[in-house]
Design a binder for these strands. Sequence first.
DNA 1: GTAGCTGCAAACCTTTTGCGCGAAC
DNA 2: GTTCGCGCAAAAGGTTTGCAGCTAC
Lengths: 125, 125
Amino acid sequence: MKEQRYSQQRERIYQVVQASREHPTAQMVYDALRPELPKLSLGTVYRNLQQMAAEGRLTQLDGPVARFDAMLAPHTHLCCASCGQVVDGVLPYDAALDRTAVAEGWTITGHSLIFTGICPACAGK
Amino acid sequence: MKEQRYSQQRERIYQVVQASREHPTAQMVYDALRPELPKLSLGTVYRNLQQMAAEGRLTQLDGPVARFDAMLAPHTHLCCASCGQVVDGVLPYDAALDRTAVAEGWTITGHSLIFTGICPACAGK
DNA sequence: GTAGCTGCAAACCTTTTGCGCGAAC
DNA sequence: GTTCGCGCAAAAGGTTTGCAGCTAC
């Protein structure tokens, strides 16, 4: 395992993901930081998000474009089919499911429960 | 709504997705059809998969690369974290969840339950 | 004859990567 | 001083799109 050094950029990227409630994409993080770090590179954002996801410091949400979540406690998500926004769900994550889902030979490490629907903003269009 | 015409390509694309149990990607469908339809274009595969997904004739599975499923009955999926393969899960889909998950102002249309783990093939590496 | 669909190729967007310089230790 | 991280730019997927010709109706 490689030694990891402090970097201002990584800390700010993490803070942006943590402060946001919208599970930002790499591009969103980049845009959010551009005003204060004008020299920031999008490649750096990707590198750090991926690194923190690998460490388990962030969770990566699959989708057409990857989103990141700093809330590590398992929970569910709601995804709007119209605008693509993702918000946290109210239903708790049921870890017991992982035990009942075992299939022949598989080792289950977790699950993701994503509800699809229309968000309030898009419903009124 | 636009009128839709029959096309040999679309039918074969659908049949490939339906016949496969691996939830193929566009590229996989393309490769599968190349021998019999050498002039087939990857763009045509994408266009038709997307069109059938929009119609509800296929389901699109999110991920780093999009996969398609012709099994419309709700069910769960197992995704291998190592090789990325997706297989159908044994646990039935619980439609009742959609009613309990309602958040302020949202209209829920369905949900996706994806288990992550290691498949038998990758476990033995 | 009139749309719709195809094949082809270019464009797009997201994500990854190679490299030389600057920063952390 | 050594190693790691950054910024930059190019490359690498995956997916979409414009267009001219062919096809279903």
